[in-house]
Design a protein around this nucleic acid. Structure first.
Length: 301
DNA sequence: AATTCGCCCTGTCGGC
DNA sequence: TGCCGACAGGGCGAAT
């Protein structure tokens, strides 16, 4: 599922090929992906607009245009790809510098392709989402930070200073499991199930620990771990555990470097204990009973 | 007021 | 082999 590192990777890779270009036509193929707007109005609002800036806020992709902003959330299985002018739809083979090859990368337009932004010269931005948990909406001008979906977002994990953030925003009396807090987008914007489990493992904290039971050193360790696993995710171009793809259609590589997510029943890479899968805050959760137990907490202090 | 629950959706996988 | 239920889960609005 696309979380902060995946969305950041997509944005960084889209910028060089899309910023500064003009949208000739917007083709919305599944109306219910669009929020609060008539699909016809949407297409006419986008037509002819230049892309001035592409950025990320939490897990949202913001595409600023001349007089409105197109906001996209990829949900669980959303993909945003760039299809170059010479991309051949459904071609069995394409001619490349090394000869005839099957086209790689960008997924052809299929029944899961819900939005096509046609740029000049036949270039396209494709939004594809098999499970349709994604969302598309339009915000007037550059006012997207005040849109209800974005205004509730907490701080950007990679921009905050840990100590002052904790002082200001850590709900020290909360009885919630710490993992629920990490997933709460009004606390931190952009952390999802993968990086929450990875950060808890890295800091040696049990996902079910109550927020109020974490002492300051643990809080600091956890937030530093969040930043580290997110930066590592970005370095590796995101985690292609299932559907996530980069804008060129290829996979990231962070899935090869995960310590716990998706590894329930396998041995811990650190201590060989069998990793335990459970349900925490209604989310599938994997942790190491040894590295993230009470004894581990003492070991870290 | 804080927290949990139910729902949306479809491809994939394991069991029989 | 084929069918079917379980599962994956982000975020919102309702329920507790």
């Amino acid at each position: 599922m696309p979380e902060l590192p995946e969305v950041e990777t997509i944005v960084r890779m889209l910028i060089p090929s899309v910023e500064g270009k003009r949208i000739e036509k917007a083709e919305l193929r599944l109306g219910r992906m669009l929020l609060d707007m008539d699909p016809g109005n949407f297409s006419s609002a986008l037509k002819g607009q230049g892309v001035s800036r592409i950025l990320r806020r939490g897990k949202y992709i913001v595409i600023e245009l001349a007089d409105c902003s197109l906001v996209i959330h990829l949900g669980m299985t959303g993909q945003l790809t760039f299809s170059p002018a010479d991309y051949v739809e459904n071609a069995g083979f394409v001619r490349t510098v090394t000869g005839l090859e099957k086209p790689k990368g960008v997924h052809p337009v299929d029944k899961h392709t819900h939005l096509i932004l046609w740029l000049e010269n036949g270039e396209r931005v494709l939004f594809r989402d098999p499970r349709t948990f994604g969302k598309i909406f339009l915000v007037p001008g550059r006012d997207w930070p005040r849109h209800p979906r974005l205004s509730i977002l907490g701080e950007e994990p990679l921009e905050l200073r840990v100590k002052s953030f904790l002082k200001k925003s850590f709900p020290a009396a909360s009885a919630r499991p710490i993992k629920a807090l990490l997933l709460d987008q009004s606390f931190l914007a952009g952390v999802g199930n993968i990086y929450a489990d990875e950060a808890l493992f890295k800091s040696g904290i049990h996902p079910q620990s109550r927020v109020r039971d974490l002492r300051e050193p643990e809080q600091v360790r956890l937030l530093e771990a969040v930043k580290e696993v997110l930066r590592k995710g970005i370095r590796n171009n995101g985690t292609s555990f299932s559907d996530y793809r980069k804008p060129d259609g290829t996979e990231g590589s962070n899935q090869e470097r995960l310590q716990v997510y998706g590894r329930g029943g396998e041995p811990c890479r650190s201590c060989r204990t069998i990793l335990k899968k459970s349900l925490v805050a209604q989310r599938g959760t994997v942790h190491c009973p040894t590295c993230q137990g009470k004894k581990a907490a003492r070991r870290h202090s």
